[in-house]
Design a protein around this nucleic acid. Sequence first.
DNA 1: ATTAAAAATTAGGTATACCAAAATTAGTAA
DNA 2: TTACTAATTTTGGTATACCTAATTTTTAAT
Lengths: 218, 218
Amino acid sequence: MRQETIENYLKTIYNLSSDNSALVGNKALADKLKLKPATVTEGLRKLHDLKYVVYEKSYGSRLTALGARLALNIVRRHRIWETYLVRELGFGWDEVHEIAEELEHVKNDKLTNKLASILGNPVYDPHGDPIPDEKGKMQKSNFIKLSEARTKLNYKIMGVTDHSSTFLKYLEKHQLTIGTHLKLKTIEAFDHSIVLQYNKKELTISVKAAELVIVEEV
Amino acid sequence: MRQETIENYLKTIYNLSSDNSALVGNKALADKLKLKPATVTEGLRKLHDLKYVVYEKSYGSRLTALGARLALNIVRRHRIWETYLVRELGFGWDEVHEIAEELEHVKNDKLTNKLASILGNPVYDPHGDPIPDEKGKMQKSNFIKLSEARTKLNYKIMGVTDHSSTFLKYLEKHQLTIGTHLKLKTIEAFDHSIVLQYNKKELTISVKAAELVIVEEV
DNA sequence: ATTAAAAATTAGGTATACCAAAATTAGTAA
DNA sequence: TTACTAATTTTGGTATACCTAATTTTTAAT
């Protein structure tokens, strides 16, 4: 199996299971990888043989310790590069995902660590995702989705779960960037859309958007 | 054909024809690409169909204008990255070739140009190779191989044609780095080894080494 | 001009990464 | 429990990028 193929599978399985270590289904994996389920079935059988995943036929797969180590490495490289592109090379947070998808496959620990060191070993990337350290350890947090926040309380935007350029541009247009403090004013009863108060103004956003924004109570 | 495969063929054909536009043989190409000649024959047929090369069966191939444009682009990325790795990220000139082999395939003009701009749009890379600009234009020079230099004259080291770590470390050990001024003292009659005078010392080097060092008369 | 060596091509084959269509299995809703 | 739907796997197939061994073409030396 090509190294890049392996890395893409493992990274994606990692991103889909995130917190828990639940089984990831082939359909979801195929969608993220832009492959057909039949292809993914085949790929998982090989990754299982290579001991990167435990593949439970018809139920899904999860990373082994070995697979998780590799996945965390790729995630580290991706997030370090995103941070470097934004902070050192002047890219916007909506531009860096695609580039980092390529750069993450450049395997050279000295390079990754040098970039991290220049950045002061950052703990979060420009989308608020935690950056694993060399050993795979990363910041724990009690962030929640904006869609799960409660009215009257104060929050701070900590990240996003959709890295697409369209979504990020939408947020930027409304000054909803990382670090922004906001209050949840009301939740519309009929469609659950959310009225936010921040920067001395009000904005109504859809549940769909609110599901992709990560906040912390302050 | 995979983009990376195309890029590796074109870059290598470019590097092997360099100055002239002579035909590049399949054996030489196969050796550089670490492939078998049979594989290269197949690859060239496809590149010919794609209009990147003119492939003259049994005689060799040369780049078309289209192929040369792509090749120059990759060469530009490679050399910009090498320069960036050395000048901005603290790598040694003997370490950067392998890393740049991977980075050169990251296709994003804004990135390449940003790096170039940070570096002040350099015209030579850390091995003395000229860096093409966005349009593919690059510095002309009248450099010669140290093995072709004449006695009594003064020269300055401008580059190397072997980027291997072992060779570069050998040069560095003897303070034969880019910019070093030297005089060709004598050429031994029997094996043509060369006695150099520089930095208040003398050093004898083999023809083999002298063929890989590029100098300019000063 | 002949011939031996070197280079290139052809023929035939493998492994990988993908796919569509058919068959199976799992999950769900009545 | 049944029957439908969605997810998954199997089957059979394609294209790419490689290889080895055999053959042909080119080049160089006499």
